[in-house]
């Protein structure tokens, strides 16, 4: 074979290999969408959504608020991120702050009505620590009403500030909520479809996180079911991937883009 022909054959072979490699990973290098900030909980979260071939839907269920990105013609493959709004709403800190700021502009009836709405939930506590904090907040709020009727406005403010101090001193932890939010096949509609896999500690945007790499058996094929949970600024979040190994890198790239903007007054 002449040398020039030999070179051509090598070049053609290399080009063919490159083409094969790119065909095997058609979407690996597909850029994510520009970063967006979501305010599902008091702590905003920012991340780059997956490419537009993953269409999005709002996700509001099970005490969470979030967004689900569903792969077009992907046979049920999706990436979702969500915040646990119901957990965040258990702490009345923000509502106490608001009431302290506007108490002078309210009538007596309005003020007492607002105070009654501040009571921390004591049913089904997340932990013993949360139960103690809730009881302490409610004791301070009970004193608000009695001091108000005793004509002691100074004491009323002190009681509200005491409730605020206690509420501000508590932030839920990942350990407290993990038993409630991680996958329990026996609690699912069809428990036999789930296979628990590997659990590991990881990090999301510099914050400690828990990850679980499980499997979902669908009628068509088994799908990876990977979950990551973390808590930032007293708000819990999850990221879930349900899909094939081929699209798992897209999930990881979305997760790697997660950041937590500072809480501004406007977003509180």
């Amino acid at each position: 074979m002449p040398r020039s022909t030999h070179r051509l054959a090598i070049l053609a072979g290399l080009a063919g290999l490159a083409l094969l490699a790119s065909c095997g990973r058609p979407h690996q290098d597909e850029p994510l969408l520009p970063v967006e900030t979501f305010s599902w909980c008091p702590q905003p979260i920012a991340f780059a959504p997956p490419p537009s071939r993953w269409y999005r839907q709002g996700d509001n269920g099970g005490g969470t608020l979030g967004v689900r990105f569903i792969l077009r013609d992907g046979g049920g493959q999706c990436i979702s991120l969500a915040g646990y709004r119901a957990f965040a709403e258990r702490n009345p800190k923000a509502a106490i702050e608001r009431l302290i700021g506007r108490r002078d502009s309210l009538s007596e009836r309005e003020f007492l009505n607002e105070v009654s709405k501040l009571r921390a939930r004591t049913d089904d506590p997340l932990s013993d620590r949360e139960a103690m904090v809730a009881a302490s907040i409610n004791e301070s709020l009970d004193r608000v009403a009695s001091d108000h009727f005793a004509g002691q406005p100074g004491f009323v403010l002190a009681d509200l500030e005491s409730a605020l101090r206690v509420a501000s001193g508590y932030q839920m932890t990942l350990e407290e909520i993990l038993p409630r939010i991680r996958l329990h096949p026996e609690r699912m509609h069809e428990p036999e479809r789930w296979r628990l896999g590997y659990e590991r500690d990881t990090v999301v945007a510099g914050h400690p996180a828990f990850a679980s790499d499980d499997t979902l058996i669908t009628d068509e094929r088994p799908l990876l079911y990977h979950q990551v949970f973390w808590v930032v600024g007293g708000c819990a979040f999850n990221a879930i991937y349900q899909g094939t190994a081929e699209n798992l890198p897209t999930f990881h790239r979305v997760l790697d883009s997660v950041a937590f903007p500072e809480i501004t007054i406007a977003s509180r």
């Binding site: 979501f38 999005r56 709002g58 967004v67």
Partner: peptide, 9 residues
């Protein structure tokens, strides 16, 4: 310009 708070749709 507004959008859904939950999903930005």
């Amino acid at each position: 310009h507004t959008w859904s708070r939950v999903s930005h749709t």
